[in-house]
Design a protein around this nucleic acid. Structure first.
Lengths: 149, 149
DNA sequence: CTTAATGTAATACTGTTTGTTACATGAAAA
DNA sequence: TTTTCATGTAACAAACAGTATTACATTAAG
């Protein structure tokens, strides 16, 4: 299975935007992230709908953070991305006729739901401000420019 | 990402084998599971290496359970399958040079590791005998043949 | 009007599971 | 011994989802 790195990627983008003054173009963000500007636009489009960022077209336009970093959790970002599928594993059939499979599914769903609940709780525990703080602390310990990629 | 249903599938197969006398061919199991015999052989091969099933070639051959259902947990089966990837989401880069991405990864890894730990704990809590018992209880409540698929 | 930017559709690329075909190997049965 | 039935395995096709790229329309500043 190919792993979905949108949450990881968009968090990276948002923290970089938090370090920048004014609007940033998707071209610039794509450079930082080593990807394509269209990918950036597609991803940030979801966040815009949730009011986390704004975009301005035309000359001098670009993207801007418009939220309180301390008020937005990783779970909010996850939701803004459309709540992507969490697990790479799942049931063969969701509504099986077979009673054996029903018994299997019941136990599997129980386990996966509990794990997902823990994951969501952890994502709700962390704000963008937490990430930013950790980044700045790491910065003090290590070097002076915050990114090459 | 395409969802991996091997764990779900192999549990289904094992419970069916538990209901059958003698050796069962991969052809027959494929019929029950509505898939291809080769898929069955591929999947059960991992379990055979762990000593959970045996296979016999040639005329009259087939597959046989050779473990104590009460002693084998879903986690054992998960391991026998080669511990497939759990999450459909992951970090963009595992060893980033960017400090922003390091901060993001640190929090993401923490959340995902906790969720994975819960999942594994749940899988360790359930034995094949538990599944079999639940199936038989469902059987009493519902009908008399245990599967059509 | 030109330039610079987003918005978006269409398409290709990539990696993983699943499905299929083909054939070699082994063992029981005729 | 030959036939038949089964596993073992390699090779390859199909399906699927995230990612990347191209192309072009739209919008706004200079």
């Amino acid at each position: 299975m190919k792993r979905d790195s949108r949450l990881s990627g968009v968090l990276h983008v948002l923290l970089h935007m938090a370090e920048m003054e004014g609007a940033v173009t998707s071209e610039a963000l794509a450079g930082i992230m080593q990807t394509n500007p269209v990918v950036i636009r597609r991803t940030l489009a979801g966040l815009r709908e949730q009011g986390l960022v704004t975009s301005v077209k035309g000359h001098g336009g670009g993207w801007r953070l418009c939220c309180d970093l301390a008020a937005v959790t990783l779970h909010d970002i996850y939701v803004a991305l459309g709540e992507p599928v969490v697990f790479a594993m799942g049931n063969r059939t969701e509504s099986p006729g077979c009673l054996v499979e029903k018994a299997v599914n019941a136990h599997m769903n129980d386990a996966f739901q509990q794990a997902e609940a823990v994951l969501m709780a952890r994502l709700r525990d962390v704000t963008l401000a937490d990430l930013s703080r950790d980044f700045h602390q790491g910065l003090q310990r290590r070097d002076h420019s915050h990114c090459s990629s």
